[in-house]
């Protein structure tokens, strides 16, 4: 199970890095979304994949007996999913607004904040 998940995580990383290297902002955003999911899968796998036994302490006991599923990675992933979803939504709006205002989604042409061909500073006083 772990091996299969590891392979999947690797595939996710490969795809997301390829997408993030693009010049076009929408591909970069998709890359970031996939990258976030790849990390979520990493946490899931790193937390050990143990199935079927819920981590509930039976009545009258003080500790778990035997091997049970680990609930913490899922709590972490849930938090991360909520956060990355909201960021993705914000970034989509930001990218769309930037496309409307700047007329391009190519990062090479986004030079408003750092214009090219600025004059040199004084070379002597």
């Amino acid at each position: 199970m772990e091996t299969a998940l590891t392979g999947l995580v690797g595939l996710f990383y490969a795809v997301s890095i390829y997408m993030m290297l693009s010049k076009h902002i929408i591909r970069v955003l998709l890359g970031i979304a996939i990258f976030g999911n790849a990390v979520n899968m990493t946490i899931f796998t790193a937390g050990r994949v143990l199935r079927e036994v819920p981590p509930i302490i039976a009545e009258g006991r003080t500790a778990l007996d035997g091997v049970t599923a680990n609930p913490l990675p899922q709590a972490l992933i849930l938090t991360a999913i909520v956060i990355s979803f909201s960021f993705f939504a914000f970034l989509l709006v930001l990218a769309y607004r930037a496309y409307q205002e700047l007329g391009t989604d190519n990062t090479d042409e986004m030079r408003i904040a750092e214009p090219e061909g600025e004059g040199l500073p004084p070379l002597g006083y």
Partner: peptide, 15 residues
């Protein structure tokens, strides 16, 4: 326009 341009780079790299 400059802020949107800067914000895109800021947002992507920080995220």
């Amino acid at each position: 326009r400059a802020q949107l341009d800067g914000a895109i780079k800021y947002a992507v790299l920080n995220l």
